[in-house]
């Protein structure tokens, strides 16, 4: 077994023990069970509910639901995948209640009709991760993700931001592996098309200011 597999197995055992203890009455251990996944639950919620405060509310509700339904967790998927599926459900229920569900059918049209061509930039230069210290750069990325069709955003957030595998993404969303791959591909190209030119301009405009010139990556 590789080191990550060993770690994953140890984590699964630790979680199974925590779940057994919680169900046996040590309820306060639920805090420990959930702590590693707070960010993941929030991001998953934010993939559908775009308002931050509402995404937090959905994340809390999803975690409470996971507590109440804990005895129903069977251990055939990872705990995190089960938790993400609950979160997606909670977010969808919320959207339906708000009668925004009509948007879904629109999304499906966009999904099948778009022209998925990347931005062609011959003079493209790598954007270093340090650029994320700048709020404008983060905002550009957030906006590009928010502008994706819902079905693409779900996949790209689970796969590329939460770094689930393609299989786990498919399990959490209840869709096929091939659909995950198609949506992921299109989402990535849409993001490249939107962001590559914007990031280039944003970095250039700042560079002229002189302040970042001294940093090693320029």
């Amino acid at each position: 077994m590789t080191a990550p597999q060993v770690r994953a197995e140890a984590q699964q055992e630790r979680e199974a023990a925590l779940i057994a203890a919680i169900l046996a009455g040590e309820r306060e251990k639920f805090h420990d069970l959930i702590r590693p996944y707070e960010r993941q639950v929030y991001l998953t919620s934010l993939s559908l509910v775009k308002d931050e405060a509402e995404a937090e509310d959905v994340a809390q509700e999803a975690i409470l639901r996971a507590y109440r339904k804990l005895a129903g967790f069977r251990g055939d998927a990872k705990f995190s995948t089960w938790l993400i599926a609950i979160t997606l459900n909670e977010a969808r229920t919320r959207l339906r209640e708000e009668k925004r569900a009509a948007l879904d059918s629109l999304d499906n049209q966009i999904e099948n009709e778009g022209d998925y061509t990347p931005a062609v930039l011959t003079d493209w230069r790598e954007v270093p991760s340090d650029a994320l210290e700048r709020k404008e750069i983060c905002a550009l990325i957030q906006q590009a993700i928010a502008a994706l069709p819902d079905t693409f955003r779900e996949v790209v957030i689970l796969r590329d931001m939460e770094e689930l595998s393609v299989r786990e993404t498919a399990q959490a969303l209840g869709i096929s592996l091939s659909l995950v791959k198609v949506r992921l591909h299109r989402a990535r190209l849409l993001l490249q098309k939107q962001l590559a030119p914007q990031l280039k301009i944003e970095l250039k405009s700042k560079k002229k200011g002189g302040m970042l010139r001294r940093l090693p990556w320029f």
């Binding site: 650029a131 990325i141 770094e163």
Partner: peptide
């Protein structure tokens, strides 16, 4: 860049 925790 997207995978970076600083984005969201």
């Amino acid at each position: 860049l997207m995978a970076d925790d600083r984005v969201f």
